[in-house]
Deep mutational scan, measured.
Amino acid sequence: TTQFTVHSPEQAEQWKEYAKQKGLEVHVQKKNGTWHVTIH
């Protein structure tokens, strides 16, 4: 599991796309103005 924080919805979307291409599961949670992205 990879977990990191991004600071814009655009970055979060890019990671979603990346994960989809790799066939991975991605979870994005918005918290205090940042987005926590978890890739399984």
Rank of each mutant, 00 (worst) to 15 (best):
T1D: 07
T1G: 09
T2L: 15
T2M: 15
T2R: 14
T2N: 07
T2C: 15
Q3F: 11
Q3L: 07
Q3K: 12
F4R: 03
F4A: 03
F4N: 02
V6Q: 02
V6C: 05
V6D: 01
V6T: 06
V6W: 03
H7S: 13
H7P: 08
H7R: 08
H7C: 14
S8K: 04
S8R: 04
S8E: 04
S8G: 06
P9T: 09
E10Y: 09
E10L: 08
E10W: 10
E10C: 09
E10R: 07
Q11S: 08
A12Y: 05
A12R: 02
E13D: 09
E13K: 09
E13P: 01
E13L: 09
Q14G: 07
Q14T: 07
Q14P: 03
Q14M: 14
W15E: 01
K16R: 13
K16G: 04
E17L: 12
Y18G: 01
K20G: 05
K20T: 08
Q21R: 13
Q21S: 13
Q21I: 11
Q21E: 10
K22W: 13
K22H: 14
K22P: 03
K22S: 07
G23P: 03
G23A: 04
L24Q: 03
L24A: 04
L24M: 06
L24R: 04
L24S: 03
E25M: 12
E25F: 13
E25R: 13
E25P: 05
E25A: 11
E25N: 10
E25S: 11
V26I: 15
V26E: 00
H27Q: 09
H27E: 11
H27C: 12
V28I: 14
Q29V: 15
Q29L: 12
K30A: 10
K31Q: 11
N32I: 03
N32E: 08
N32W: 05
G33N: 09
G33L: 05
G33D: 09
T34R: 11
T34D: 07
T34E: 13
T34K: 13
W35N: 01
W35H: 02
W35R: 00
H36D: 05
T38F: 08
T38C: 10
T38G: 01
T38L: 07
I39E: 01
I39P: 00
H40I: 14
H40N: 08
H40Q: 10
H40L: 13
H40D: 05
